[in-house]
Amino acid sequence: MPDVAFVLNGQPVEVQIAPHAFLVDVLRDRLGQTGTKVGCGTGECGACTVLLDGRPVNSCLVLAVRVGGCRVVTIEGVAADGELHPLQRAFMDCGAVQCGYCTPGMILSAKALLDACPAPSDVEIREGMAGNLCRCTGYVKIVQAIRAAADELARSSRTAFPGARRGS
């Protein structure tokens, strides 16, 4: 059984795994990080989305043996210093969560989107979220929440860097 060592939510971890083990199962069953959900198991629904070296991937399709040396971020690693991420607050404030099963994957896809494209249009939001299915909300509130979080992030970066150009 190979050992795989990677950085999970900023912390180095090392775990012995079977070569055919998928990342989502290692996260949930071996490392106790159950925020990452299994929906379809075949890369359709996005409930298992995690960030691998900053990019969203379906952790149900990634062999755990392949993440050696990589940075993995799950929903457990999105809040910083006990403060919820603006996306997490916006999902609650906008009512973008109903049953909640898709939410961890939604938040990670949205985070990847905003990291790459801080001021997305509604079309860009919908394209960025195309790999995450929600069977409760109908997506309208999810799009609203992501837009609200983008606005909040833009405001706080202006506060943090008062010299920054407006609207950038």
């Binding site: 890369g43 989305t49 790999g131 995450n132």
Partner: peptide
């Protein structure tokens, strides 16, 4: 093709 997650793999 696929989703952003799929296109990353």
């Amino acid at each position: 093709i696929g989703s952003p997650q799929v296109r990353n793999l």
